[in-house]
Structures are given as C-alpha cells and as structure tokens.
C-alpha cells in the first residue's frame, strides 16, 4: 500500500514510471520531430544545419512543390492510399464478420479444418505471398490495376479469427433462433443483428487491417508500375530512389513523409479508445 510508505519513497515510486515513460515517449517522438523540422528546411539547409532545430522557414515552399510536382501526383497517391487502406479494410471487415459469423454459429462439415486453414493464414507473412499473387494476377491480366492491391487487401485471416471469437461471445444463440422463428432470413440476421452486436470488434478489425494494408509495402511494389496507382508509401519510395538524378527530390520526400503521417496520426488519436480495447476485444464480455 502506498499510503503506508514514507513520503519520499512513495514519490520515487510514482516518479520512476514517469521518467521511463517520458524517455520512451521521447525516443518514439524524436524521429517525428526530426521529420517535422526537416520538412521546414530548404535543400541547402537540410544537409548543413542541425537536424533537430529550425533554420530558415521553407515549409510552405516545400509543401507547394510537393503538391505540384509531376502534376500533383502526390495528391493522387494520398487518395489511392485512402482507397486501398480504407476500402480494402472495409471489405476485409465485412468478409471477416461474415466468415466469423458462419464459423461461430453454423455447423457444417469441415468447419474446424477450414478454420484451421484460416488460422494458418495468420502465420504466413504477406511478403511471402506477394510473388505467387503476382503470378496469379498476371495470368488473370489484373496486374497494374487497382484490383491487384485491393483484392488481396480484402482478406484478413486475423480478422476472421477475431470476428469468430467476438460473435461467439456477444451473440447469444437464442437471439438468432428467435429471429429465425420470426421469419428473418440469414442476411437479415447477419446485417440487422450480428453486425450490430459485434460492432466494437469490427472497428478493431478495420483498424488492424487498414494499418496492415498501409504497411504492406511489398505488394504494391511488385503489382504496380503505373505511378498513378501508387499508394503514398510506394510513391515516396520511388521519388527517394531517384535522388541521384534529381537531388532536390529529397526535400519533397521529407515533406511528403510528414504530410502522409498526418491522417494516420489523426486516425490514431480520434479512435484511440478502440485501439485500447483492440487486443482484448474478444477476451472480456463488454
């Protein structure tokens, strides 16, 4: 009990975590700070002025160049990223919920075997699937299209697992039976009852999947060659590989990285409570 301790020791106890957490926060925020400072600098200052403090303000010039370079392709990359990570995660969430519901509430032959296959899918790193996927999509003549990134992104084995656990925990069998008695069809039951009851888990699945899509750099790298289809990560990477031809691109890569962090940071902050619930979503009945 803290109350029983001498005051000095109690203060020390509460101080230690604070120090550790502050240090950790500094460690994680420092690169972001560098990014912010660097994006305010001109090309010349970027190399020669100290990285963690400002020099002459060139942020607005950098941003203007960023949004106008190559006819404003950067804006397109942002929109593409929103499409891949947003629509892809939305589809993955819907499919996960459907599959999770079926695994949880329907009995059919090979259910556990099929579920085992899905679980095995969690263990396969996305990068390992990129080349086989490329060859498949190539024979379907779908490489270098939006579908090449969207279709693989709409699949989330982890989401199926989470959805199943959540449906089992949050949707009573009696409720479904009652709905059937009242004449509700499977689709009605799923959309009107199941989806509503597992909504918190769906948000979690959506967030996990959108981050997974955002981070899956390798898939668009090998699927896409038309830069109009790039997500922002691949676009910036592409610019960064061209700096030997045009060193001025460094400035745009830095500014572009900063801008690309903003939507993700906003999403994290505004949806923070779902994140906190995330890993435990299936563990405790809400």
């Amino acid at each position: 009990m803290t109350a029983a301790l001498p005051p000095a020791q109690g203060r020390l106890r509460s101080l230690a975590p604070l120090v550790v957490l502050t240090a950790a926060a500094g460690y994680f925020l420092l690169p972001l700070w560098w990014l912010f400072v660097a994006s305010t600098k001109s090309r010349g200052d970027l190399a020669v002025t100290p990285g963690l403090w400002f020099s002459d303000l060139a942020l607005f010039g950098n941003l203007k160049d960023l949004f106008t370079h190559e006819d404003g392709v950067y804006v397109r990359w942002l929109v593409n990223t929103a499409l891949y990570a947003g629509l892809g995660a939305a589809l993955a969430t819907l499919f996960s919920a459907m599959a999770g519901y079926v695994f949880a509430k329907h009995r059919f032959r090979g259910r556990e075997a099929a579920f085992g296959v899905v679980l095995a899918g969690v263990l396969v790193p996305p990068a390992a699937l990129a080349l086989p996927l490329f060859l498949l999509f190539s024979s379907a003549e779908l490489t270098n299209t939006y579908w090449a990134v969207l279709v693989p992104s709409a699949v989330s084995p982890l989401g199926v697992y989470l959805a199943r656990v959540q449906v089992e925990a949050a949707v009573p069998d009696e409720l479904i039976e009652a709905a059937r008695m009242d004449g509700a069809g499977e689709y009605r039951i799923f959309f009107a009852i199941v989806l509503r009851l597992v909504r918190p888990a769906l948000v979690t699945i959506f967030l996990f999947q959108s981050v997974a899509i955002w981070n899956n750099f390798f898939l668009p790298l090998i699927m896409l060659t038309d830069s109009d289809l790039y997500p922002v990560t691949l676009g910036l990477f592409s610019w960064n590989t061209q700096v030997l031809g045009d060193p001025d691109l460094t400035r745009l890569v830095v500014a572009g990285s900063l801008v690309s962090v903003v939507p993700l940071a906003l999403a994290f902050v505004s949806l923070e409570r779902y994140w906190r619930g995330g890993p435990l979503a299936g563990g405790v009945k809400g």
Partner: peptide, 17 residues
C-alpha cells in the same frame, strides 16, 4: 510509367514479368 530505381525494385519487376 515512372517506376522506382532499377535496383530498388524495377529489375525485380522485370524479372517477375
């Protein structure tokens, strides 16, 4: 198509294709 530098991915993409 403005692609990444060859060694950064485009050579691999040629090979895949």
């Amino acid at each position: 198509s403005k692609v990444p530098d060859g060694r950064a991915g485009t050579y691999q993409n040629y090979n895949n294709a």
